[in-house]
Design a protein around this nucleic acid. Structure first.
Lengths: 234, 234
DNA sequence: CGGCTAATTGAGAGACGTCAAATTTGGTGG
DNA sequence: CCACCAAATTTGACGTCTCTCAATTAGCCG
């Protein structure tokens, strides 16, 4: 919808071998990784990392911030496929296809490490461990997608939002504030709902002291109850 | 829901090297594959190949028939994640996790090739091509999942059913009969709808001569129009 | 020809979407 | 620091799509 090619801030070298994905792989291997040329690229909100249908030339690792992957219907509705978090990979398409099948845009801002696919492929030829690693990550993604299919296909609005909030705040210790980087629109596009429904659920839960919101941060007040909502009991 | 452990018909040796996935890999490699022990297993409808939460010991290739992968909500609703077709792989979980995260049951009946994951892992150590192949397949699955997320999250009932029918009959030449292996319930569980809505849409489209149904077979009469329905024009 | 399950159809309810207005928020410049 | 504007969010009223519940019909196997 929002078309705007990234005016990429800068492109400094990104030390691939230091990326957490490749941790625990042996020093000899890390040594080989140093040779892979890759750039650390900085994107601000509303800049496009890549668009669906574009040539899939790069593979990415998120270093900082969050990236949303989404697809758009012919009728113009966006569906967010996944929110990619720091340390996670995206842009698998290039390893298999010529074109990206979805678009990638940062939430707010993000720094990503950009690796040309042919370099990665070369590296994979020499170092099979790389492809094993990517395979493992990819299977994890698949499991995550399975879970989301269950959410979208078999759950109602309250359950979807509740389990999203739970997983979003999952890392944070109970009762602490978690920055909520997503707008209402983005939450709606992620959960297959409308802005209004999301807003109404929030309002309802705030009134019932289930959650609390301040600025762009969220705090879960009644974890137990929210979990019950997520599982459609209550 | 339907709990029933498979009383597997028989388990004859399955020549892995002859599987279409491994075609085009060079004879030397195919030679190595011969050593992999794997069984061809026959399942009839309602037999469970594996259940979510079970130990993920095997990796599978569909030889004949179709396999449905599904997850079940705590409240007991099933969502079909994917219909696995002949030549396709499933059971990736075992390569990464101890347990399966979804269940696998054949539609009607199916013969699958069952490969113990540790064998596959051993083979992968010697032959990196194997993991590359699995990686590629996995990425394809991910793209497919992306598309389904768009369907479930951003499309209404008619669009979902239309694009499902189109993709199901995709292989068949236009105007020909395609066996429809799924029950109304299974279509509903795949598309996140109810039996009734699916049935009503079928009825409507039959009346309008969009599609025709005979026994367990389906024929698309007005391809153009059905495509328009799938894209929510019309 | 029963008897069972799957599928269809109808009527009514409810969840969610749509449209529009009101309110809040965040950012900008004075 | 405050006034002001645009964008995001909230809230209300209303419409409709899809689900639910129930009854009927069709299909299939012994």
């Amino acid at each position: 919808m929002m078309e705007q090619q990234a005016s990429v801030d800068q492109a400094t070298h990104c030390p691939v071998n230091e990326l957490p994905i490749f941790a625990g792989l042996g020093d000899k291997f890390r040594e080989a990784l140093k040779k892979v040329e890759s750039d650390a690229v900085n994107y601000s909100a509303a800049e496009t990392i890549y668009s669906a249908g574009a040539e899939a030339q790069n593979f990415y690792v998120v270093r900082d911030g969050y990236v949303k992957l989404f697809k758009t219907t012919l009728s113009g509705k966006d569906q967010i496929i996944r929110i990619v978090k720091p340390g996670e990979l995206f842009g698998f398409d290039g390893l298999v296809d010529v074109l990206y099948n979805h678009s990638a845009v940062p939430l707010k801002h993000a720094t990503v490490c950009r690796i040309p696919v042919e370099r990665l492929r070369t590296l994979g030829d020499q170092r099979p461990e790389v492809e094993r690693l990517i395979m493992v990550r990819c299977i994890k993604e698949l499991q995550h997608a399975d879970e989301r299919l269950l959410e979208l296909g078999a759950k109602r609005s309250a359950e979807r939002l509740a389990s999203f909030l739970l997983s979003w705040c999952g890392g944070t210790p109970s009762g602490k504030w978690t920055p909520l980087v997503l707008s209402r629109l983005e939450i709606a596009q992620l959960l297959g709902l409308t802005i209004e429904t999301v807003s109404r659920l929030f309002a309802q839960w705030k009134r019932a002291s289930l959650v609390e919101e301040k600025r762009q941060a969220l705090r879960i007040l009644d974890l137990k109850l929210l979990q019950q909502v997520a599982d459609s009991r209550e």
